[in-house]
């Protein structure tokens, strides 16, 4: 049984660099972390692998080559194989073009299920896993907070998803694409001491456009169907306000304000 986990490394949103001339995010040489929802999906796959000998876990990411060390770290945690789709040719791709690139790799890959996160913290669009599923002709469900213990045993998977005002249990036939929520609390293990410097080079593959064979018009900025036409800094009107200290006088000001405006029961 083979699980492919989609992993997105996201910029630390406090320290992003934006290229205002090209209107794209500069992803080279950034400090990036694994998207929390994706981390939970991988954590679940690794936990399953620990309990069942037939489980093989591949981590798939699309990122600049500078992210190769981050991907290798995930192999030291227990993933069997890592694939990094990386080519400067793909730079500037929107979610549509990105989905096309990832799906083309997956079209020739072997898997029983594809796991991903539900939300991505940086863009928060949730597009890519859904669009990859559509391109592969697979069904998809997300917001997963818990998998049943006997999932993946007989070609099906039973899981619980959390929505705004309801929880729902679903059964789905494999193969499919499933999105996990960070609320699932599946936690990545720590690297075992003896694996800290483990050489995993022979288990990592970098896939470029040489293998995928896209033309210039299909990917990158040219292949994207959405384009940032302009950006501007948000302007806000300043409100007249009272500034007080966190002392008796300040507290009294707040208290009297709440009382005057009718907020005190």
């Amino acid at each position: 049984m083979k699980i492919i986990c989609l992993a997105k490394f996201i910029p630390d949103v406090d320290h992003f660099v934006y290229d205002y001339e090209r209107n794209v995010l500069v992803r080279e040489n950034m400090d990036l972390v694994l998207n929390p929802d994706d981390a939970c999906a991988l954590a679940y796959a690794l936990a399953l692998k620990k309990n069942r000998q037939d489980v093989e876990v591949e981590v798939l990411s699309m990122a600049p080559l500078s992210l190769l060390p981050n991907l290798k770290e995930l192999l030291r945690l227990g993933a069997d194989r890592g694939v990094l789709i990386s080519d400067a040719f793909f730079s500037g791709s929107d979610t549509y073009a990105t989905s096309c690139i990832i799906a083309r790799y997956l079209a020739d890959a072997q898997y029983d299920v594809i796991l991903s996160g539900t939300h991505a913290l940086d863009g928060d669009t949730e597009h890519v896993p859904v669009q990859v599923a559509e391109l592969l002709g697979l069904d998809h469900m997300a917001y997963i907070v818990r998998f049943d213990d006997d999932s993946f045993l007989n070609g099906t998977c039973v899981f619980e998803s959390e929505f705004d005002n309801a929880n729902a249990r679903f059964r789905v036939r494999l193969p499919c694409v499933l999105g996990v929520l960070a609320e699932s609390r599946y936690k990545l293990p720590f690297v075992r001491y003896e694996n800290l410097d483990l050489n995993v080079d022979d288990r990592v593959t970098v896939v470029t456009n040489e293998e995928l064979g896209f033309s210039h018009e299909e990917v990158g900025i040219a292949g994207s169907l959405t384009k940032v036409a302009s950006t501007w800094q948000p302007q806000m009107k300043k409100k007249e306000q009272v500034i007080v200290g966190n002392d008796d006088e300040g507290i009294e000001t707040v208290f009297q304000f709440l009382k005057k405006e009718g907020y005190m029961p």
Partner: peptide, 20 residues
């Protein structure tokens, strides 16, 4: 939650861009 799963699938099916 379900609209966020529907919109990207439909956009891909129709081969059009989607702004979320």
């Amino acid at each position: 939650p379900m609209g966020r799963l529907l919109a990207p699938r439909l956009a891909m099916r129709l081969r059009v861009g989607l702004v979320a």
